[in-house]
């Protein structure tokens, strides 16, 4: 058993895999996408517009908005604030190839992306971020 899990006596449900740019990446239930990517050795999943510098987890607590990622077709979600769920398809890279707006159906897909966990809205990356 993973010594870190033994240390905190964690007894997680059986793991699963999600799709990250076509690769299967293992998930421990309850992990945020940021934690999943980090655990898989993925440190950066987008680049800045000027200079193409790498961006990934910076604050890890929902404040800095650096870890934006596309999940099930919905762009610009904070990886650190979203729980990985079975069937998730994560696309890294730039949020809007060609500078096009997000497709109209994106918000519908977000709602339909699976049942939100208790007190956990999958759309939390949007809107009221200043509280």
């Amino acid at each position: 058993m993973n010594p870190a899990r033994r240390l905190v006596r964690a007894d997680p449900e059986p793991g699963f895999e999600i799709d990250v740019d076509g690769e299967a990446v293992p998930v421990v239930p309850g992990q945020s996408l940021g934690a999943v990517l980090h655990a898989a050795g993925i440190r950066s999943w987008r680049t800045t517009r000027s200079g193409g510098r790498p961006r990934g987890l910076f604050c890890g607590i929902g404040v800095c908005f650096d870890c934006l990622v596309t999940v099930n077709g919905v762009p610009s979600l904070r990886a650190c604030q979203i729980e990985a769920r079975p069937g998730d398809r994560v696309t890294t890279g730039r949020p809007h190839p060609d500078g096009r707006p997000a497709a109209d159906h994106a918000s519908t897909e977000r709602e339909a992306a699976g049942p939100a966990g208790p007190g956990r809205d999958r759309g939390a990356g949007g809107g009221r971020g200043d509280s």
């Binding site: 610009s76 990356g125 971020g129």
Partner: peptide, 13 residues
């Protein structure tokens, strides 16, 4: 009007 296709992801004051 084009901005309707983008998300506002945060705000500050």
């Amino acid at each position: 009007p084009v901005l309707a296709g983008y998300k506002a992801i945060r705000a500050y004051c």
